[in-house]
């Protein structure tokens, strides 16, 4: 008897909840052209807690909520796996939802090109790019190379003596940023020895002399440079960055290598997102980008502003993909 009662209670609960969620969904804003969120917005970080995507997602939602730019909750949901592929597949399953966003960066282009994700940036709705980061190539402080040109000259004569280490696997970011610049400098990229250390042992391997070059992000090098342990031969930006130490890093362009690599980071929605919703989010991200709180956040993390939206963003992504495609084809890594 008691059991029947329990089951009945649960059933009633189920029915009540199902009804209530339906009714709220249908009433709101059917005629209104201006779209605004009706329920919490799920912000997906296609990686585990603690990484770059997760940090960006958490910081963006935090500023959105604290500055009252968006009055709905914005829970960050981690969908880790496959270098992002699992998260992207999840978003692809939320087609035409207006309450899902996710954060991504160059892997959204590289992972599909490597044949490890069936979804690429074209399967989503680009909303706004927020941040740019740049790559840095570091060597030990007592190394004989002082410029990228020195290094690349030696690589041209004897590539077997120089190993490059990075965090990501071959064909992904740390590898491709080095390849892109090295190729522009005339190095035979097929002879570049690249090692990956996914657990972040790159700096250790550089410091103890196991490898010669560390391909990484600019921020990772600053403190070691300041302490005089390593030197940065070049960063992949067009112009020098601002800030103590940072402004000392020579760019690739000023060393006569006409190539750059941008580690962009932006927000996307699922495919077929309502244009009114896209408009809403674009405006909100614009407000965020202009806010003082976000500026402070950027400074804390050493992120550079890079705000692109709409069709410009799409064009940028397409161009990035074309360039990567050419390089990967050259290496024979594209699938």
């Amino acid at each position: 008897m008691k059991k029947v009662f329990v089951i009945l209670t649960i059933l009633t609960l189920l029915i009540v909840s199902a009804c209530s969620s339906k009714s709220t969904g249908e009433d709101a804003g059917a005629e209104d052209k201006k779209w605004s969120p009706e329920k919490p917005i799920e912000v997906v970080a296609p990686a585990g807690p603690g990484g770059g995507w997760d940090t960006t997602a958490r910081m963006v939602t935090q500023v959105f909520e604290e500055e009252n730019l968006i009055d709905k909750r914005m829970p960050v949901v981690n969908k880790a796996g496959g270098g992002g592929a699992v998260g992207w597949a999840y978003i692809a399953g939320q087609k035409s939802s207006n309450h899902h966003l996710f954060v991504s960066s160059p892997p959204l282009i590289l992972v599909p090109l490597n044949g490890q994700s069936q979804y690429s940036h074209e399967d989503f709705t680009p909303i706004a790019n927020m941040i740019a980061d740049y790559g840095a190539f570091a060597v030990k402080a007592d190394s004989k190379w002082n410029t990228l040109t020195d290094l690349f000259e030696d690589m041209k004569t004897d590539p077997t003596k120089i190993s490059v280490i990075g965090t990501s696997s071959p064909g992904s970011m740390d590898h491709m940023q080095f390849i892109k610049i090295a190729q522009a400098a005339g190095v035979d990229v097929k002879k570049v020895k690249y090692l990956s250390d996914p657990d972040g042992g790159g700096m250790t391997a550089l410091l103890n002399g196991s490898v010669e070059v560390y391909s990484t992000g600019v921020a990772e090098t600053v403190e070691q440079v300041r302490a005089g342990k390593i030197k940065v031969l070049g960063i992949t930006a067009e112009e020098r960055l601002e800030g103590e130490v940072l402004s000392d890093f020579p760019t690739t362009v000023e060393q006569g290598i006409d190539e750059t690599f941008i580690n962009w980071r932006g927000f996307f929605g699922p495919a077929d997102m309502d244009p009114a919703a896209v408009e809403y989010y674009t405006a909100k991200f614009q407000e965020l980008n202009d806010s003082g709180a976000w500026d402070e956040m950027r400074k804390k993390y050493g992120w550079n502003e890079m705000f692109i939206t709409g069709d410009d963003y799409k064009d940028f992504l397409n161009k990035e993909r074309e360039e990567m495609q050419v390089l990967l084809d050259e290496l024979g890594l594209a699938k």
């Binding site: 496959g82 270098g83 490597n114 490890q116 994700s117």
Partner: peptide, 15 residues
């Protein structure tokens, strides 16, 4: 994914 080559090993196409 094998870290040194990027080859997917024994994943049977499952992301």
């Amino acid at each position: 994914i094998d870290s040194q080559t990027g080859t997917a090993r024994f994943t049977f196409g499952n992301a």
